[in-house]
């Protein structure tokens, strides 16, 4: 019994990471209908940026976020202004193709710079600290921190969307680009701010990914799939739905792995397919007015 409780708890905690993969993806699609195929590779890029920061400055990974987050946000702003804004229009295909190309460029660029060797960020003693929640149920400090950060990120995004002028601009631009311009909103800037925000979240996700497990330049696309699955399970309605999607995916994978270690990914995909079959709009779809 406690064994299963442990499994589910681990699944919930990893779900926080998946929710962070998904949040940036969902934000970009929501604001500008751009499907960012390079999202997973940008997560890996953030991990390598963190690797460089921790190695050159001797910071621990969590402190390195203070530099990695703004750096990725800046990259996001520039990427949108200089490249992706030019691909946006009535057709969904050009941005899809361009981000697909970007994905290949990032993977190969990282391969050139850092080789195909597996890397990992070392967070020190915190990596092995655990607490006993109840008799037989243990929780690691790092997964717990990761989950708390994920909840804070989701709550922060939700607040930004519904309580700030920037969030209002995101929602208005998403509703009607032409009229948003008539309100004095430069949509090119609004989109770039959205991408900056997306990559700020990517930075946090990338650092936690890199502390948790080994990474190399090729693992991006699989993270993209996890992100997509979490978004679609949760539905595009709210950021909290995205968190729920991440948690469901995480728990499914953990349960699958418990039954048979080879079933971890399969179980996640099956849960995703099952929800897609029963509720194609996701669990928390956008309420249409």
């Amino acid at each position: 019994m406690t064994e299963w409780l442990n499994v589910i708890l681990q699944g919930v905690l990893i779900g926080g990471l998946y929710a962070m993969f998904a949040a940036g993806l969902s934000l970009i699609f929501g604001v500008m209908r751009l499907v960012n195929i390079a999202h997973g590779d940008l997560i890996v890029l953030a991990a390598y940026v963190a690797l460089m920061v921790t190695q050159t400055l001797g910071l621990d990974p969590l402190t390195s976020l203070l530099l990695v987050v703004p750096a990725m946000a800046l990259i996001g702003y520039a990427l949108q202004r200089l490249l992706l804004n030019r691909t946006l229009g009535d057709d969904l295909l050009p941005p899809l193709l361009v981000t697909f190309g970007l994905s290949i460029i990032i993977q190969n660029g990282l391969l050139e710079l850092f080789t195909a060797d597996s890397r990992k960020l070392q967070a020190g003693a915190i990596e092995v600290q655990t607490f006993q929640m109840m008799e037989g149920v243990w929780v690691g400090a790092l997964p717990l921190i990761q989950f708390i950060v994920a909840v804070a990120v989701i709550a922060g995004l939700q607040m930004l969307f519904y309580r700030t002028a920037l969030g209002r601009a995101f929602r208005a631009t998403s509703d009607d680009q032409a009229v948003a311009q008539l309100m004095g909103l430069d949509t090119r800037h609004v989109f770039a701010m959205a991408m900056a925000l997306s990559l700020a979240v990517v930075a946090i996700a990338g650092v936690f990914l890199a502390v948790r497990a080994n990474f190399d330049p090729s693992i991006g696309p699989a993270r993209l799939i996890f992100g997509f699955e979490a978004v679609i399970i949760g539905g595009l309605g709210s950021m909290w739905g995205t968190l729920a999607g991440g948690v469901i995916l995480g728990v499914s994978q953990a349960v699958g792995a418990q039954i048979d270690p080879g079933w971890q990914l399969l179980a996640g995909h099956l849960a995703f397919l099952a929800i897609l079959a029963v509720r194609p709009q996701g669990l928390f779809p956008k309420v249409s007015g």
């Binding site: 002028a165 209002r168 929602r171 208005a172 509703d175 009229v179 948003a180 309100m183």
Partner: peptide, 16 residues
């Protein structure tokens, strides 16, 4: 803007 409340619609008009 359908995603915005009445007041948010007015506020976004004052964006400039």
């Amino acid at each position: 803007f359908p995603s915005l409340t009445v007041e948010e619609n007015l506020l976004i008009g004052g964006q400039s």
